[in-house]
Amino acid sequence: MDIQASKIEVVKMILELEDNSVLEKILSLLKSEEKLTFKQKKGLNAAIEEFENGQGISHDMVMEETKQRYAKYFDK
């Protein structure tokens, strides 16, 4: 995926956001990107690449696993 296609994909994802806290985290990340270390940038780029290759884990899957593992912290 080229840079323009990646940007369009990111914009689409941002436009579909319903959770304002996620948007605030994205803004914070973008504003602080120049403060990231090389290792942090490398890790983020690796995560983005995994996501683009369909290797990521959806938020729903993570939440389901978290609820199972830490059930006592969630309302029933």
Rank of each mutant, 00 (worst) to 15 (best):
M1E: 12
A71H: 06
M61A: 09
N53T: 01
S32E: 12
K72P: 04
E49S: 04
K67F: 01
E50M: 05
E49G: 03
K7T: 14
L15S: 15
R69E: 07
V22T: 14
M13K: 15
I14M: 15
E65P: 02
F51Q: 04
M61L: 08
E64K: 11
F38Q: 10
I26A: 13
Q40H: 03
K39M: 07
E9D: 15
V11L: 14
F38V: 13
K72W: 08
V62L: 07
L44T: 02
H59M: 05
R69A: 04
Q4I: 14
L17Y: 05
F38L: 07
F51T: 05
A5M: 12
E18M: 12
V11Y: 13
K76P: 09
L17H: 02
M61G: 05
V62K: 00
G43L: 01
Q4T: 14
L17E: 08
I14H: 13
S21T: 14
I57F: 01
E16C: 12
L44D: 01
Y73S: 04
A46Y: 04
M13N: 14
L27A: 12
N45G: 06
A47R: 00
V10G: 15
S28I: 06
E64H: 06
L29D: 11
M13Q: 14
G54W: 00
I8A: 15
L36W: 08
K7W: 12
D60I: 04
E34S: 13
Q4C: 11
D60P: 03
L15K: 15
V62Y: 04
F51W: 04
M13Y: 13
L36S: 10
S21R: 14
G54S: 00
L30W: 09
K35V: 05
S58Q: 02
T37W: 05
D19Q: 09
I26P: 12
Q55A: 04
L30R: 09
E64N: 06
K39F: 08
L17M: 11
F38W: 06
K67E: 02
S28F: 11
K25M: 13
T37C: 05
Q55L: 05
I48C: 05
N53H: 02
E9N: 14
L44R: 01
Y73G: 03
S21G: 10
L29S: 13
A47F: 00
D75G: 07
D2F: 01
S58D: 01
Q55W: 02
K25C: 11
K35C: 07
D2H: 00
S28T: 12
K35T: 10
V10T: 15
I48V: 10
E64L: 05
N20I: 13
A5E: 15
K35P: 03
M63P: 05
Y70T: 01
K76N: 12
E49R: 03
Y70F: 03
A71K: 06
Y70S: 00
L27G: 15
I3T: 15
T66C: 08
N20Q: 14
K67H: 02
S32L: 06
L36C: 08
I3K: 13
E34G: 12
T66S: 10
T37P: 08
G56Q: 01
D75H: 06
G43E: 00
F38S: 10
E9S: 15
E33T: 06
Q4M: 14
I26E: 09
K72S: 11
F38C: 04
G56A: 04
S21W: 11
F38H: 09
I14G: 11
A71Y: 04
A71V: 00
E24V: 11
